[in-house]
Amino acid sequence: MCNCDNTYIPIPMKVEKIVIDNPDRSLRTYDLSFVNEEDENKFKYMPGQFCEFSILGKGESPFGIASSPTEEGLKFTVSRTGSVTNEIHYLEEGDIVGIRGPMGNWYPLEKLKGQDVVIVGGGFAFTTLRSMIVYMLENRDDYGKITVIYGARHPDLFIYKEELKIWDKRDDIILHLTVDKPVKGWDKLCGFVPAITKDVKPDPTSWCIVCGPPIMIKFTLPVLLEIGFAHDKIYTSLERRMKCGIGKCGRCGIGSKYVCIDGPVFSYEELKKIPDAF
């Protein structure tokens, strides 16, 4: 049996760079490079897709790909919450890890061409949104106005802070950063993402991508609907405990869909038909 047909076999990747994203060190971003050239050539992905990050002996966890296909290698941001992520945090630069993917579908970048795009994100779920933003900025002429609303509990908890600073200075992307509560030294917005979205009131003829903790999505969707966004123009990415990533193991089932193969990206039009999606 050839390994290349076996989806359960991870490909080796090397940890090139580790960035600690916040002062309590619970969030780290990993830049990985392909060990084998043939793996690299085969690995074609789009913003929104995810991978199973594998630590032999500990297991696998699914993470959205934070890098853009326009960049080299892969980028993942990992929050320390369970046994696998704990082990990932022990990794050092130069270590070899296993990656399976890319899995799932992606943001509707084809449909977004020529359109204005609103991106609403929260916390460290900003990963695939970063992928998407980098991709759109790299192909800037293909897209209309790009508006980003990004919230975190505290200024420290934003990820990709350096890039946020750069984007903030650009004039072809509008960035609204917000924190839950006022913090000394924070001169940007203050308030929860749904409320800020209401204030920003993005143009309802544009397309909207929402990604964040379930509770944020739950309260942001009604705001978008109220503003007048079309149901099939709102997209979100769901999180579930995907294990196999190929629609078999049953963990990520929501209704008759599997998040790992039918998602993780769903339009609101699809989601409203699925019971208990979030």
Binding site: L56, K248, C249, G250
Partner: peptide, 21 residues
């Protein structure tokens, strides 16, 4: 046919198995 994937091993040697769940 739901299943779990789990690693068993010690140090650098071991196996990845799938188990009914």
């Amino acid at each position: 046919h739901c299943f779990d994937v789990s690693d068993e091993g010690k140090g650098k040697k071991g196996q990845r198995i799938r188990l009914w769940d």
